[in-house]
Design a protein around this nucleic acid. Sequence first.
DNA 1: GTTAATCATATTGTGTGCAATTGAATTGCT
DNA 2: AGCAATTCAATTGCACACAATATGATTAAC
Lengths: 153, 153
Amino acid sequence: MTDLPSVSLALDDQLCFKLYAASRAVTRAYKPMLDQLGLTYPQYLVMLVLWEWHACAPHLPTVKALGERLLLDSGTLTPLLKRLEQLALIKRRRSAADEREVHLSLSEAGQALRDRVQPLKARLLCDSGVDLSHADALRQGLDQLLRQIRALL
Amino acid sequence: MTDLPSVSLALDDQLCFKLYAASRAVTRAYKPMLDQLGLTYPQYLVMLVLWEWHACAPHLPTVKALGERLLLDSGTLTPLLKRLEQLALIKRRRSAADEREVHLSLSEAGQALRDRVQPLKARLLCDSGVDLSHADALRQGLDQLLRQIRALL
DNA sequence: GTTAATCATATTGTGTGCAATTGAATTGCT
DNA sequence: AGCAATTCAATTGCACACAATATGATTAAC
């Protein structure tokens, strides 16, 4: 029977709320840029992974590998990937070697889209006026928090 | 024609992704506790605001006031509040003075629920092993980021 | 004192997130 | 080989988020 500390329930004291609010605010800040690209925010994250994969990895990513990278499951990814396929940005192909897997690849248009992102994101970063070293410290802090939470399973 | 800086598109460099991933991870960490309370995470945040309001404010909050506090709009809040009303945790009453407004108040059960949260959250905080000063620094950093983004409109 | 503009909430539609289940394919064990 | 356990994707159902629109109420302009 250990003594539990008393805990604040004030909204402004909640790290969880700040995280939730800041995450949605950042997504909103990306909206004008993403509208120009015709992507939603999660679709943009998927494209980031596929661009990165396309540049360095020797084999195509599966839905599972993508999900591990983004911490999303097939219930979220399957319909999202179908929309990206409808937009002709990606291709989905059932693996011949293991028919349970679906391999993902970029179309020409999907590859080309990357070139349009760079200047838009640079402009967004400039306009936001966010201090780079401050943002970096925040990113590292979030990384540490994420690892701790994932350690709890 | 200003020169735009070159920007990384690597997923791990993106503050936005760390924020998005950490926010969802924290929500998952709250899930066992919230399941015991019969609440979803956004519903829990609404209850935090109503408990706080109930304790100090002289008048009942409206949907609008709640939305300003949580940065959510009526499209999200209206159905969520109806579910909380179905759970008999809150009451919704159209204002007599201004029929555009809906005033929110806690039921007896809604007030009583607060007492069950305190120990559950203390236990969660203990088990998480998150360093308090670290969490506090993170919270302040997020606060600053949130203010900067909101300043962009 | 109408009329126009504004305001607060509700509704609709699209796109996530995520738990739970399904179903097909593969692997492991014997 | 045969069968149970596991794996991967898809599906289903529910609850957000949020843009866009609608509706009714209030305020402001004239």
